[in-house]
Design a protein around this nucleic acid. Structure first.
Lengths: 249, 249
DNA sequence: TCATTTTTTGACGTCGCGTCTAAACTAGGC
DNA sequence: GCCTAGTTTAGACGCGACGTCAAAAAATGA
């Protein structure tokens, strides 16, 4: 039992190490430059051993992606607990999304990869289930806030729009905006967009105004608000720093 | 001159044929299953010949992408001419975006691919310039509508939000929404989103309400509105049918 | 110490990209 | 009609990456 557990621990450790190597390779050279050979080499194991942990390259991808999403979920749950109105919480959520994508430079790009043809098919069922489950939980976290706002009378549910649809709209904006921001071929600056994150937070607020979500936007500067959020999500920002040093050691 | 021109025509024809083959392969089997060998085989030419037209696989991608974007631009320009208020036009634009992504099942996925690491680097400068130029034109088309609305007094430019930022927000929503919709691993239905396109059009309208863009949303059913747009974009819908038969012949 | 089971290794088959040389073809002069 | 110079095409080749598998190595247990 003891030896077995030791062996299991060894395997789990190696699993984590391989994921770490994969992550750092992904950060440094992008997905197309990550190869199983390379990971094996850096881990000082052979290819065969790596394949005992991951059935294919995509499996590493999805597991890294799931890790990122777990992190997102926990940031979102933190955001849900933000002290303030439901609106403030919602905005905190949008901020949290940005924070996450900065914490996790590969998270978004992995999500993008996940949506490509032929990934879902290659990946293990278990990882895929975990993935969709996380998706549901993350989505549910946002739905929670909207429903709380309705429950507390700060938002009247529009006749023509269900709660999931509202969440979908905001999700789309954050997701799309993040892709456009982190994407390397669109020059937002050139198009007149200097601070995309701030822009999207403002647009999120505008959308809530459009929903008549009380209290309507007051004159508080968004920059100030951003600073507030920054303080609130301090620990995550710290984790960011920790991650940075951990992956680049 | 005549013979030279004939040769040139032959080359141009073959270029188009290769792109067509690439497109249909992309539609049928997804990007990862498209190979230069395969294209050459289907075209009944050798690999070397294909490489005389496209320096690499990505070059085919970006040229197909540019074709799609040209199509998008023309649909957008049509939408800009929609008879009605500027708001109606804006909504028509959102509708047009959906229409395009249906006309062009690969357009979106190619845009996604474009944003991935290592594509921009491999592609010819000319194609890349064309790409960014199209992007600018498409973006400009939307900016136009917002600015017209401001000019005609139907929209007061918010203090904290520039026109490009507003456009960026709506763009993000459409783009992200489209990815989430066409993506094969997110089950929107399960999350309670039955008609994502309608949902996004409504959210677009909500956002415009939040901007105080006159006239505010009246009680017109969006389903009705959608039918109106459908009629207006009749020709594009027809082109869709034509394309379908052309690529699958 | 040896036999059995587990783990690790890296050579191998396959595929796709992109190159490059030799062969086929074309055009134009005689 | 034939020959040559230039152009176009074919496909063999080298390379690198994926994923497999049988043999080698290590661990376990008697």
């Amino acid at each position: 039992m003891n030896t077995l557990s030791r062996k299991q621990r060894e395997i789990a450790d190696r699993h984590a190490m391989l994921l770490d190597i994969g992550r750092s390779l992904l950060v440094e050279e992008g997905f197309h430059n990550v190869s199983m050979e390379r990971i094996a080499e850096l881990a000082e194991y052979s290819k065969g051993t790596v394949y005992q942990h991951f059935s294919c390259k995509e499996e590493i991808l999805v597991q890294l992606c799931n890790d990122s999403m777990t992190q997102l979920l926990s940031i979102f749950e933190h955001a849900r607990a933000y002290p303030g109105t439901h609106r403030d919480r919602m905005l905190a959520l949008i901020y949290a999304h940005f924070l996450w994508s900065e914490l996790n430079p590969v998270g978004m790009s992995m999500l993008q990869h996940m949506s490509m043809h032929g990934v879902k098919e290659k990946v293990s069922e278990l990882s895929m289930e975990r993935h969709t489950s996380l998706e549901k939980q993350i989505f549910g976290c946002v739905v929670d806030i909207v429903e709380s706002a309705i429950h507390d009378g700060q938002l009247v549910q529009p006749e023509q729009q269900s709660v999931p649809n509202i969440v979908f709209g905001l999700w789309s904006m954050c997701f799309g905006g993040q892709i456009l921001t982190t994407t390397h071929h669109v020059d937002l600056q050139m198009l007149g967009i200097n601070n995309p994150q701030l822009a999207l937070m403002r647009m999120g607020s505008v959308t809530m105004d459009g929903l008549n979500w009380m209290p309507l936007h007051n004159q508080t500067s968004f920059i100030e608000l951003q600073t507030k959020y920054q303080e609130y999500f301090n620990s995550e920002a710290g984790q960011l720093a920790a991650n940075r040093t951990a992956t680049s050691h």
